[in-house]
Design a protein around this nucleic acid. Structure first.
Lengths: 247, 247
DNA sequence: CGAACTTTTGACAAGCATCAACACGTGTGG
DNA sequence: CCACACGTGTTGATGCTTGTCAAAAGTTCG
């Protein structure tokens, strides 16, 4: 059911940054049968606790993963951008331990877990590539634990903004320090372990300090050095290879 | 350089809970050449930022991974027990994004990354098994983000105690609700994003409520139901298959 | 037996949450 | 096309959870 216009190429490109693949591996990956799903903002792809037998890749738009806490609070555990694989954990174990939801409207490539597993079993190099991509995910999780656990509000938000800047730059979605940030302040709070009100005040503070500016749905980094200093941001954990300074 | 008395069997057993392996896969894993390293409590195995070309497995004792924040604070991102693979991310990427340190004295099996990678490339099923184990790790990270981000002190600590109870039970280190907990209150604080002082007060509170009791280096769960309620603990994220009630 | 670490306690401060209200923009249905 | 509901951003007042600082008591180990 591969779409005509769209392909898994952006996902493959990302994988190939870290692993050398043969032409056959490439072909095998690009030939993975997938269903394209166009979703509106807020659409829920997977719900925590439900069975999950598919894995997806983001073709356009933003998605995020989150968990619901007993008291009703919500924690966003990752933000996924174009080219990111999504939900590999859920798919391989068969049960979702977190929900997956669209942050903006966009489209996903949905791949049945069985198909993915078959190809992975046949092509060790491909399996390694996807494995590494999940390890990067894991590394980002580790950084988020530290972010939420040991940084104050200014630092948490700055760190999140830095991470998104670098990741979006890697997929060409950053232009002269500006990028789309389709997160509401409530979502930023859910990602950083803060309340929307406090996020609001902290962002105002960052604006007043001249570190960033932002309108409705985008952010401009006015002073990258200051932002990374405040956030204690070191991009090593993203394992993107050589990450140059923000241009 | 395989030790005579000890082997990677506990690690393999853990892997085999989730994946079917052939005899050849088993043999290949058990024949992985490793160096046994006996370390004292507090010994540092890997330091954040250093090159890392080995991966380890815990043969005895407790280890932990942690990150250092710009302001000097520390965040523990995982606690590793017998049979856990350690540092796979560091090894595969070649640079450590977190430190690894012994929590108690104990011994590790240290495997060169190159060897591991070779065997993984040759044996897709084994690669898949190790991959899944890193995905479980990742799932635990996700839960920790939520723990630190959205739960209060009582819940955070209770959740940590629940997780350790379940994981230690899985490797036979829990006896009638009691298990070794070789963490200082400062380390518990570093794992939960709290200060040692507040950890102290919160644990006293849990003791007074009759939920747990603890002496120097061990914890006894007096009321499992209450502890899981307070912590909002659901073991699904550990992907241990059927996890029965605490016995 | 003393040094170093860990647990415990108290007083106080601060960061962030909570609650409540209002402003603003957007889309929708009457 | 306007009215209105709704989501989001903003502001203020207030309070609680947790952090900070400091010191004493208990513990471990050479």
């Amino acid at each position: 059911m591969s779409a005509i216009a769209e392909s898994l190429q952006p996902v493959l490109s990302k994988l190939e940054k870290r692993v050398n693949l043969s032409d056959e591996d490439r072909r095998a990956f690009l030939n993975l049968p997938f269903t394209r799903k166009d979703l509106g903002a807020g659409a829920c792809l997977t719900r925590e606790g439900d069975p999950a037998r598919t894995c997806s890749a983001v073709l356009s738009g933003f998605a995020y993963r989150h968990k619901t806490i007993a008291n009703g609070a919500r924690q966003i555990i990752s933000v996924q951008v174009v080219g990111d694989l999504l939900d590999v954990e859920n798919a391989l174990f068969g049960t979702a331990t977190h929900s997956v939801q669209m942050m903006t409207s966009g489209s996903l490539a949905v791949i049945p877990a069985a198909v993915l597993e078959k190809v992975m079993a046949e092509r060790p190099a491909l399996q390694r590539a996807v494995w590494l991509s999940t390890l990067v995910d894991s590394s980002v999780f580790g950084e988020w634990i530290a972010n939420v656990g040991r940084r104050d509000a200014r630092a948490r938000i700055s760190h999140l903004l830095c991470e998104l800047a670098v990741r979006l730059k890697a997929v060409g979605l950053l232009r002269s320090g500006t990028y789309d940030l389709p997160m509401t302040q409530e979502q930023i709070g859910d990602a950083t372990g803060l309340t929307a009100v406090h996020v609001n005040r902290t962002i105002q503070d960052l604006r007043r300090s001249g570190v960033i500016s932002n309108d409705k749905r985008s952010v401009t980094v006015q002073n990258w050095r200051a932002l990374t200093d405040i956030g204690g941001f070191d991009p090593a954990y993203l394992h993107e290879g050589t990450v140059a300074a923000l241009s």
